[in-house]
Design a protein around this nucleic acid. Sequence first.
DNA 1: ATTTTAAGCTAACAAGTGTACGCTGAATTT
DNA 2: AAATTCAGCGTACACTTGTTAGCTTAAAAT
Lengths: 206, 206
Amino acid sequence: MAGVRAQQKEKTRRALIHAALNQLCPESSFSSLSLREVAREAGIAPTSFYRHFQNMDELGLTLVDEGGLALRQLLRQSRQRIADGGSIIEISVHTFMDYVTNNKNIFRLMLQEQAGTTKEFRLAIAREIDHFKKELTDYLRTERQTEDKLARIQSDAIVRVVFSAGADILDMNAQERAQLTEQTIQQVRMIARGAANLQETSATNP
Amino acid sequence: MAGVRAQQKEKTRRALIHAALNQLCPESSFSSLSLREVAREAGIAPTSFYRHFQNMDELGLTLVDEGGLALRQLLRQSRQRIADGGSIIEISVHTFMDYVTNNKNIFRLMLQEQAGTTKEFRLAIAREIDHFKKELTDYLRTERQTEDKLARIQSDAIVRVVFSAGADILDMNAQERAQLTEQTIQQVRMIARGAANLQETSATNP
DNA sequence: ATTTTAAGCTAACAAGTGTACGCTGAATTT
DNA sequence: AAATTCAGCGTACACTTGTTAGCTTAAAAT
C-alpha cells in the first residue's frame, strides 16, 4: 500500500506550511496572513485549506512546534559536541544565533506571538522556552554543581538574555551579528560568574 | 482667546487615543485594530479620524511615545528617591513592574510592535529601550565607577532581563507578580555581582 | 458683518476577508 | 465490479476594511 492519496495530502500540507513561512517576511506578521493568500500560494482553492487545518491558528501552532523542536535538537547536538572541548556557553550561544539567522521567519513568528493575541500561541511558545530553561537548569545542577534554586534563577536569566539578543539579531548584518553574539557570550559569563559568587558567599554565610 | 475649537479638537484626539488603548486587550493586538472601530468607540465618523492622524500607525506611535516618556519619568523620579536610602536596584525594578502592571495595554503594544511589522514602530521602541540602557549605563559609570565598556554590556543585560520579565508579568496575578519581581531583583544583582567580579579580575590581570 | 477655516458628517466604492454548501473524480475498500 | 471515501473545486454570501469626494456648520479671522 503505497498510499498515493495520503502522500499527495502530505505534499499539499507541506505546501501550505511552506507558503505560510514564505509570507512571513519582516513586513507581515503571521496574524496578518490571510487564509486565502496562503492557499493561493500553495496552489489550492481557499476552501480546500480546511482539509488540512481547522483554521490559520492551527497552522501557526504547527510552525511553532516544528521550529521549537528543530532548535532544541540543534542545541542538544551542540551540547554533545562539548566533550571534544570548547566552552558550552560559547557553543550554545553560537548555535542559537545561527538558528535564528537561518530561520528568521519562524523565530520572528515566535517573538510576535509570544506577546500575541491568541492564548494558545502564547502558551505554546512559553512551553518551548520552558523546555530550554529546564534543560539548562539540569545542566547547571549536574555539571556545575549549582544549588537548585540558584540554578533555576540563573538559567532563567540566561534564557532571557539570549532570546532577547536573538530578537535583535533579526535585523542585523553579519558583522553586527558577530558582535552581538560576542557580547551575549560575555553577558552569559557575567551571569554565571555572579551566580557562582553568590553561591560561595551563601556557603560561607549559612 | 479661549480656543474653544482647539480645545474640542484636543478632546476628541484624546478620545481616539483612549479608544485605541481601550481596545488593546490581550485578545487583540494593535495591528489588528481597525480605524473604523477606534473611530466608532471615540464617537466620531470613520472619515473624521483623518483630521487627527494620518493613519493608524501615527496613532500607535503616539501611544508608544507617551508610554515610553511616562515610564522614563517614573524611573527618574524613583532614582532620586534613592538618596533617602534603599537599593537602587530594588526600587527601579519595582517601579518598572508597577508601571507594567498599571499600563498593561501600552506595554503589550510595545512588546508586540517590537517584533512587529512596521519598521517605524520597531525603531521607536528600540529608541525607548535605548534611552533606558543609556541612563542605566551613565548611572553605573558615575555612581558605581564601572569601566565604560563593561557598564554598557552590563546595563544591556539588565535591561533585557527586566523587560523580558515585564512581558511575563502581563498574565500574572498579584502573588506570581511579586514572586517574579523578587526573582528579577536577584537576577539583576547576579549580573551586577558578575560584572564587578569581572572588573576586579581584569584589574589584577591587565 | 462678512469671509475664511476646518472638524465632523453622509454616502459610496473597490477590495478583501472567512466560511457554508454541494459537486466531482480518482483512490481506496468492500 | 460496485460502493465508499475524501482532497480539491466553484459559487455564493454576508461582512469588514481603508479611503475619496463633497457637504454642513460653528468658530475664528478679517
